[in-house]
């Protein structure tokens, strides 16, 4: 299809608007992260800081005892461990379940039951689980977060993957089955590769959901051994001496890992989603 010149101009204008709307808030976050506290409280607002100050970033990468850097970097480590492990477990348990729902219909109420747990306000689970983890000595331990996050991720990993498998034709599996492949082989060698992209999409969703979780982490962790990024950020924002610049810097850095993964996975994500992975 060829576009008229007007249409082309309209497209570019719209794209420019879109880019601006996404970038502007983030750019402001960046400006705050390099501005002096006094610059930010000047009226009328000074958009570009007189003297860019990158010291906050330097502070976040220092490894001295008790420094902001140590808090940030250990939270980063904990977040990576928790998000990656919870995602891996959720995929390992969710993929077979999704496959079962997709290929052996008739158990849908079970899927809905699982989704209902996802609808509960987190407060419901928090106190009883606190007791359990405390009895097991798992408080302030990334393990407890991994366990809880699994139950958050599983319902929708299962759901997403089920619709992914639904779009893989049964015929190609039947061919392999005739050749004598067992179920495990069929799933790992045929179905999953075809649905690889939807798996990537489900993984990214799961990863970001775990990366973002705040409330459980706030109550279950108490120091650098287990605190995750959202909790560390809330800590930076607390206390009666809020350094907005530091919060902005931490926020930007915290977004970096998922953004990098996202950029990296973008191609497979798009094709994965387009393979019908999230069809209802």
């Amino acid at each position: 299809m060829r576009r008229s010149l007007t249409a082309t101009i309209l497209v570019y204008v719209a794209v420019a608007l879109f880019v601006a709307s996404i970038l502007a808030p983030v750019a402001w976050l960046f400006i705050m992260s390099i501005s002096d506290a006094n610059d930010l409280t000047t009226i009328p607002l000074r958009w570009i800081p007189e003297q860019p100050d990158f010291s906050r970033y330097a502070r976040l990468f220092s490894l001295e005892e008790g420094s902001a850097g140590l808090t940030f970097l250990s939270a980063l480590r904990n977040s990576v461990i928790v998000a990656v492990s919870a995602t891996a477990i959720a995929l390992a348990a969710g993929i077979p379940a999704a496959y079962s729902f997709s290929r052996y219909p008739g158990r849908m109420p079970l899927l809905y039951a699982v989704i209902v747990t996802y609808m509960m306000p987190p407060v419901v689970l928090i106190l009883p689980l606190y007791k359990v983890f405390s009895a097991l000595g798992l408080l302030n331990n990334v393990t407890s977060l991994i366990i809880v996050y699994c139950t958050i991720l599983l319902p929708f990993v299962t759901w997403l993957m089920k619709s992914g498998f639904d779009s893989v034709p049964v015929e190609i599996e039947q061919a392999a089955s005739i050749d004598g492949a067992n179920l495990f082989q069929i799933l790992t060698r045929i179905t999953l590769p075809v649905a690889a992209a939807s798996t990537g999409a489900a993984a990214l969703f799961a990863l970001l959901l775990a990366w973002d979780e705040f409330f459980y982490a706030l109550l279950y962790t108490s120091d650098t051994r287990a605190k995750t990024l959202p909790v560390a950020i809330a800590d930076f924002a607390a206390g009666r001496a809020t350094d907005y610049g530091l919060i902005s810097a931490v926020g930007l850095l915290a977004a970096l890992p998922p953004v990098l993964i996202g950029f990296f996975l973008q191609k497979s994500l798009l094709s994965g989603l387009s393979a019908g992975s999230v069809k209802g």
Partner: peptide, 23 residues
Amino acid sequence: LEFVPYEALHDKIVAAQGAGSSG
């Protein structure tokens, strides 16, 4: 020592009540 924001102090003390000796 554990340090939490003021907003979380009450909740954390409360949550720990069920925790017995590890509180």
